[in-house]
């Protein structure tokens, strides 16, 4: 069959080829993989319990002794252990928030785009309204009513940041639903639900994947904002955000306490953003010509 000649490479293979050529994206992906691994294996890498206090050893500088490779904080807790465990918390918030964002945004976007008419109008006005408020404001309003737990923080971040995803998905669905394969499904008698979730949604996977990657970065950043404002992850549980908050009193004397979690946040955000950009380029339908 000549079909095999036309497709020397699978679709995923082609995307990977293009992604690999994108140096920054590759570096981003590498950083992300490293961060995920360090969060996953935090108990193995951490020198000690991140909540263990040792008031005799406060403010140890980094690289001073092997027991505390990155020093200790104002309560004598080991900074490397707190960074690793804090990474677990921050990345969990980032991932759970991303899943919430993507599911909400995709559901609203596909419903608005596919059903159109009044439903579309109402949903899109709702999106506009949500976008009128800065996200931090929405977060703080909700935080005033909901006690901050890991789950509630993640959900609240997720539920206040799905609007762009819904717009992206809606635009994609508006374009896709005019294609003949959708008419073919309707001619076969497919239900609306089947058309939305079996025919259309998988075709919107690429922009959703890109948005998801970028959303992890913004959720990690958002967690550190609200932790900084005192509404985020509560001590003694470490997160990069609340490590930063604790460090602010000592910024002039022991700057590394702020620099280290700050660097971790920056690295994470940049890693996910570069990876997202690379994915966007690799998946972009306008560039979907063969190399």
């Amino acid at each position: 069959m000549s079909a095999t000649a036309a497709a020397p490479q699978s679709q995923i293979g082609r995307v990977w080829t293009r992604f690999r050529r994108h140096r920054l994206a590759l570096a981003g992906g590498f950083v992300v993989a490293l961060l995920l691994a360090s969060a996953l294996f935090a108990p193995a890498f951490a020198p000690q319990d991140p909540t263990l206090l040792d008031t005799a050893l406060r403010f140890r500088p980094p690289f001073a002794d092997w027991a505390h490779p990155l020093g200790t904080d104002e309560l004598g807790r080991d900074t490397l252990s707190r960074l690793l465990y804090g990474g677990r918390v921050s990345l969990t918030v980032g991932l759970v928030a991303m899943v919430t964002t993507v599911m909400t945004g995709a559901l609203i976007g596909i419903t608005a785009g596919f059903l159109g008419g009044v439903v579309d109008n109402l949903l899109m006005r709702f999106v506009d309204t949500m976008l009128c408020f800065p996200q931090v404001f929405l977060l703080l309003v909700v935080a005033a009513f909901v006690p901050p737990t890991l789950l509630s923080i993640s959900l609240v971040i997720g539920l206040t940041s799905w609007m762009e995803v819904s717009r992206i998905v809606r635009a994609e669905i508006l374009h896709l639903k005019e294609q003949d394969f959708v008419a073919a499904a309707r001619a076969l008698g497919a239900s609306r639900a089947r058309i939305m979730f079996r025919e259309l949604l998988p075709n919107a996977a690429a922009p959703i994947l890109v948005a998801a990657t970028l959303k992890v970065a913004s959720a990690v950043l958002m967690e550190s904002y609200i932790s900084y404002l005192g509404y985020g992850v509560q001590p003694p549980l470490a997160s990069w955000g609340n490590m930063l908050t604790n460090a602010q009193g000592y910024f002039d004397t022991v700057p590394w306490l702020a620099i280290l979690p700050g660097a971790a946040i920056t690295l994470t955000v940049m890693g996910f953003n570069f990876m997202g950009d690379g994915l966007r380029d690799a998946l972009d339908p306008r560039l979907r010509m063969d190399p």
Partner: peptide
């Protein structure tokens, strides 16, 4: 039933041919 003009737009690019042809029976 209908057969469309454009052989590219009329088949869902994310489904295998088996999936496309089984859809009528599933529905």
């Amino acid at each position: 039933q209908i057969v469309f003009q454009d052989p590219y737009a009329s088949l869902n690019p994310r489904m295998t041919v088996g999936g496309i042809l089984a859809a009528p029976y599933e529905i």
